[in-house]
Simulated assay, not measured.
Amino acid sequence: AGLVLLAGGVSTFILAGRPRGGTAVTDPVRHWLILGVMVGVALALAGWAKRSRTMWSPVLLATAAGLLYGVQDALTRVSSIRFREGGLTELFTGGHPYAVLALGVTGLLLVQSAFETAPLRMSLPALTAAQPLAGILCGVGFLGDRLHTDTGALAWEAAGLAAIVGGILLLGMHPAMPCGTAEERPVRDLQRN
């Protein structure tokens, strides 16, 4: 069911939205506003996870990491555009490659914290669902990607995204996913030996 939802959701989103690339939006306020909101939400989720320390903490940490990875993907694309247009000088005089590095390290720390505090089935689906959603938001928001926006297309796109998230969640909760945390694995390995 998870595979069917995931495949059907991707197909529905692509058929309804007919995504196509465009030229990056040159409005720096829009660019940095979207990035600021995405990073701000990720930091708020991470802070909430740290303060609450409930069973939802790994989900919040993984969602935060997924958002940061989605932003990192978008900034990697911006960096490649800058490199194509002006070479290494253009690439390294902007802040994008440095932001890619900072987001990657921060995302890695968040996702490792999520993986160590609960079974993968708690955190991996949130990470896997948040990253492409953040990438789509950045793509449409400031990278110039275009989607069909009539009422019918938007409804089908939303249904496709919901099916994608639902499919990822079902796959993440499948019994084949590992049940223990990273801290429990060595103990079980020792018991087997």
Rank of each mutant, 00 (worst) to 15 (best):
H174G: 06
P178A: 11
L101F: 12
V165P: 00
M122R: 12
F13Y: 08
A155S: 15
S79K: 01
L169E: 14
W156E: 08
P19K: 03
L143T: 09
P178N: 10
V140N: 05
D189T: 12
A44M: 15
S52D: 14
I34V: 08
P186L: 15
R192D: 15
M177G: 06
V29K: 08
A99T: 03
A65R: 05
S113Q: 10
T23I: 09
P119L: 02
L60Q: 07
L190V: 15
G104Y: 03
A102V: 14
M55G: 06
I14M: 05
P125F: 04
W56K: 13
V78M: 01
A99P: 03
T106G: 12
L124V: 13
A62C: 15
G40K: 13
G2T: 09
L147C: 00
L190S: 12
T26S: 12
E90F: 07
I81P: 05
A176W: 15
A44K: 13
W48G: 02
L109G: 04
L5H: 08
A42D: 03
L67S: 00
A153G: 01
R84V: 07
A24R: 14
V59Y: 08
T117M: 12
A134C: 06
G94D: 14
T149A: 04
D145W: 07
A129S: 09
T23H: 05
V187P: 12
G160A: 10
L154M: 08
I164E: 02
V187A: 05
G135W: 00
L171T: 09
L3R: 08
S80H: 09
P178Q: 15
P125R: 13
P28W: 10
R51H: 12
A118D: 14
G9P: 03
P132A: 04
R192V: 04
V4F: 11
G180E: 10
P186V: 05
P186R: 04
I164L: 08
F83T: 08
R18H: 11
V59G: 03
F115K: 11
R121I: 04
A65Q: 11
V165L: 10
A74C: 05
L88I: 10
G104E: 06
A102S: 11
P175L: 06
L110I: 09
A162D: 04
A126I: 02
W156L: 13
Y98I: 09
I14N: 00
A158P: 07
P125H: 07
G70L: 12
G21V: 07
G166A: 10
N193T: 14
A44I: 06
V41P: 01
L161P: 00
A62F: 14
T12M: 12
T23R: 14
Q72F: 02
G8I: 05
R121A: 05
G87S: 14
E116S: 15
W32E: 03
R18N: 09
K50H: 07
G21Q: 07
G36N: 03
G87V: 13
A65W: 08
V37A: 05
A176F: 11
Q191A: 11
